[in-house]
Simulated scan of single mutants.
Amino acid sequence: MNMKCIHSYEGRTTFFILLISSLCCLFPIAIASFEEVEDETPFAYTEERGKGPKEWGQLDPHWKLCDTGKLQSPIDLLSGKRQVLPSLGKLKKNYKPAPAVAKNRGHDIMVRWEGDAGKMSINGTDYKLLECHWHSPSEHTFNGTRYQLELHMVHVSAHGELAVVAIVYKYGRPDSFLTRLFRRMKTMEHDEKTLGIFNPGDIKFGSRKYFRYIGSLTVPPCTEGVVWTIINKVRTVSRDQVKALRDAVHDGYETNVRPTQSLDGKRVLFYTPRVNSGSS
């Protein structure tokens, strides 16, 4: 099932493309400040533990953006206005196999590439692929609909700017990338497991259509200036695969999803190839 953009707005496309570029330039933050918290102990996803999402901004002075930020993620992608921009351009990705490790961070399962795993390009800027990880259920929603799983592919530019590609999944056929991961990992209880050469190109996008907006990390420190690209296609994952991801994380983190944040005037762009291109 594909998600379809509801509203179409024409004209001034160049302005909005420049807007994305200029917003990226406003956040030349060092790579270290973009890093997600590795140890989940300081925060939780359930409010009854006293460390839930509503309290993240008070738990550490470096996390205040979780409360005060105006570009926070995730969001509902079909709320408010969207600009449909065919001129936004096709996703330019060039991934390649590289040495990788899988790490159980307690609050999620991550695959981190230790070699050059390739890149994607946005508005002429190259972003190197660093890692991917999973949230269950999905963090981004679509008219309030939350899917069973969301994959985040985290990239960073030479100037420390972050770009994340997100793919959402519903129950159905097994996901081939997770199948390959589980073959390499007999158990996901280990803190870290060497995977050998692992190909990020095995992650299937399934559509050239995508949403884009400027947001934040979805875990502390909730750093802003993240260029989000959410693929329009809903892919499939098996119930057993989702269960394996949930069983592997620490107790209390089986549902590792931050609530959707206010749009606060965020401009959501939607790319679709022109009708005569024959692309999906």
Results as ranks from 00 to 15, higher is better:
Gly196Ile: 05
His140Gln: 08
Cys5Gln: 15
Val242Pro: 03
Gly50Glu: 12
Leu71Phe: 10
Pro221Gln: 06
Asp175Ile: 05
Asn232Asp: 15
Ile230Pro: 03
Phe198Ile: 03
Met153Tyr: 02
Asp108Ile: 03
Arg49Thr: 12
Lys70Trp: 01
Arg173Asp: 11
Ile31Met: 05
Tyr171Gln: 04
Thr14Asn: 14
Val111Asp: 09
Ile20Cys: 09
Gly278Lys: 11
Arg112Ile: 03
Lys54Ile: 08
Glu38Met: 01
Met185His: 13
Lys81Arg: 12
Lys93Ile: 10
Leu195Phe: 02
Arg105Asn: 00
Asp108Ser: 09
Tyr147Lys: 12
Lys54Tyr: 03
Ala100Cys: 11
Gly52Val: 02
Lys204Arg: 07
Thr125Val: 15
Ser157Gln: 09
Pro99His: 15
Asp60Gly: 05
Leu245Ile: 08
Thr68Asp: 11
Pro74Asp: 11
Glu38Ala: 05
Tyr147Pro: 00
Tyr147His: 14
Ile197Trp: 02
Glu254Lys: 13
His133Ile: 01
Val268Ile: 15
Lys4Pro: 02
Glu36Gln: 12
Cys5Lys: 14
Ser277Pro: 02
Phe211Gln: 06
Thr218Trp: 01
Arg180Thr: 09
Asn276Met: 12
Gly11Ala: 10
Gln83Asp: 11
Ser207Gln: 04
Ser157Ile: 07
Gly118Arg: 05
Leu91Pro: 11
Gly172Met: 11
Val154Ala: 10
Pro53Gly: 06
Phe177Trp: 13
Cys222Leu: 01
